[in-house]
Amino acid sequence: MAAFGSVFMPEMAISWFDGEQWSGTNVVPSDSLQLHPGAHVLHYSSTCFEGLKAFRHEDGSIKIFRMDRNIARLAQSSQLLSLPEVDKDLLADMIKTIVARFAADVPARPGSMYIRPTHIGTEAAVGKAAAPSLSSCMYVLLSPVGDYFAGGDRALRLLVDDEGMRCPPHMGMVKSGGNYAGALMPTLKAKAEYKADQVLFCPNGDVQETGAANFLLIDGDEIITKALDSSFLHGVTRDSILTLARDLGMKVSERELSVDELLERAAKPGTEAALSGTAAVLAPVGTLIHHGKDIAIGSGGVGSTTVKLRKALNDLQWGVSEDKFGWLTSI
């Protein structure tokens, strides 16, 4: 099976901003993007993106999950990067147009169609290191994906880094490629030295997030996760899981969580931890690595509450359960 996100539909939706207005929705071959070598994005990383999914329901209909929330976040990221203002209605049209065009290719459960809207600065001006790009391009790629856990549900190993940051604090809530690039080397080092799957960044002992996912600690019927601020990504899946947890009667505590408290709670029987994100929804965490020592979270395996919450979200996405929160958009 091809790696997640490595197969693309042959066409994409695209729009160009010329400094005054957007061009509207166009559908072009996915490999037809042309940029000047001096484009702002290639030199000064004026780029942001989103990740969301479309799902095929049993009746054959196609539903996009939380499109409005992802569009709002792309608009926010663009604003924080000083990119041209996103036309939200245009982006919604681009997403629905390209998903409708390839509706027949949306995989049935447990697969889905991964949607990647991207916004990049295109002005050819290498002298603008301290100035924004006046022109830009927005495009939407599609990638059919299978079951993230096809190889089996496995509890992950996280290296707890209580010094390093994933990215500068003011950039945390921006979904920009530079943040991921900055976390790559520490993650590769953790994999090589500790056989860790991810690094849990905890600067000054403050538990934040991994390089590509939000972190949730589950202690009995309580979920503990860092309160929203500008230092880390405001995950749509995170928000969805917390909303479902409250609906199921669980207590949700969005607050500061220290490494000391994390390690203390991790040792308790029944404790679980998970990473939330669009690809895996909820991936179980079984082991924390701190100062060279392995610390099992609860049983060290896949937690039952993690599986229950993931199933609750998946069932809503595929139309098995009621969409009581109005999260699904029809095409």
Results as ranks from 00 to 15, higher is better:
residue 220 G to C: 11
residue 162 D to G: 11
residue 62 I to Q: 08
residue 21 Q to T: 09
residue 305 T to N: 15
residue 282 L to D: 11
residue 140 V to L: 01
residue 48 C to V: 12
residue 56 R to G: 05
residue 147 D to C: 05
residue 180 Y to P: 03
residue 280 A to V: 09
residue 256 E to L: 08
residue 142 L to H: 03
residue 175 K to G: 00
residue 326 G to C: 07
residue 321 S to T: 15
residue 126 V to F: 07
residue 143 S to I: 05
residue 62 I to W: 03
residue 315 D to Q: 09
residue 77 S to F: 03
residue 173 M to W: 01
residue 292 G to R: 07
residue 294 D to W: 12
residue 103 A to V: 02
residue 172 G to D: 02
residue 155 A to P: 13
residue 261 E to C: 02
residue 126 V to A: 05
residue 325 F to S: 06
residue 221 D to V: 04
residue 213 A to Q: 09
residue 283 A to T: 14
residue 214 N to Y: 01
residue 10 P to I: 02
residue 258 S to K: 04
residue 302 V to Q: 07
residue 146 G to Q: 13
residue 277 G to Q: 04
residue 40 H to N: 06
residue 262 L to Q: 11
residue 318 W to Y: 15
residue 172 G to W: 07
residue 190 A to M: 13
residue 232 F to T: 04
residue 106 V to I: 12
residue 239 D to S: 13
residue 217 L to R: 07
residue 37 P to C: 00
residue 88 K to P: 15
residue 22 W to N: 00
residue 232 F to Q: 04
residue 228 L to M: 14
residue 164 G to V: 09
residue 242 L to T: 13
residue 205 G to A: 05
residue 261 E to S: 03
residue 223 I to Y: 15
residue 145 V to P: 15
residue 183 A to E: 09
residue 6 S to Y: 07
residue 145 V to G: 11
residue 125 A to N: 15
residue 216 L to H: 13
residue 300 G to F: 06
residue 131 A to D: 04
residue 191 K to M: 14
residue 239 D to A: 11
residue 272 E to R: 08
residue 158 L to W: 07
residue 114 Y to P: 03
residue 189 K to R: 15
residue 117 P to E: 04
residue 303 G to L: 02
residue 295 I to M: 12
residue 91 L to T: 01
residue 111 G to W: 03
residue 275 L to W: 12
residue 217 L to G: 12
residue 123 E to L: 10
residue 17 F to T: 00
residue 299 S to W: 09
residue 43 H to S: 04
residue 92 A to P: 04
residue 4 F to L: 07
residue 130 A to D: 12
residue 31 D to Y: 07
residue 11 E to R: 00
residue 19 G to L: 08
residue 78 S to V: 06
residue 109 R to L: 04
residue 194 Y to H: 12
residue 120 I to N: 00
residue 301 G to C: 05
residue 139 Y to S: 00
residue 261 E to R: 06
residue 67 M to G: 01
residue 176 S to G: 08
residue 13 A to G: 06
residue 97 T to R: 00
residue 231 S to I: 03
residue 61 S to N: 14
residue 196 A to S: 10
residue 70 N to A: 01
residue 116 R to Y: 02
residue 244 L to Y: 05
residue 8 F to V: 00
residue 251 K to P: 05
residue 277 G to Y: 13
residue 183 A to R: 01
residue 129 A to E: 09
residue 47 T to N: 10
residue 299 S to M: 08
residue 67 M to V: 00
residue 142 L to C: 06
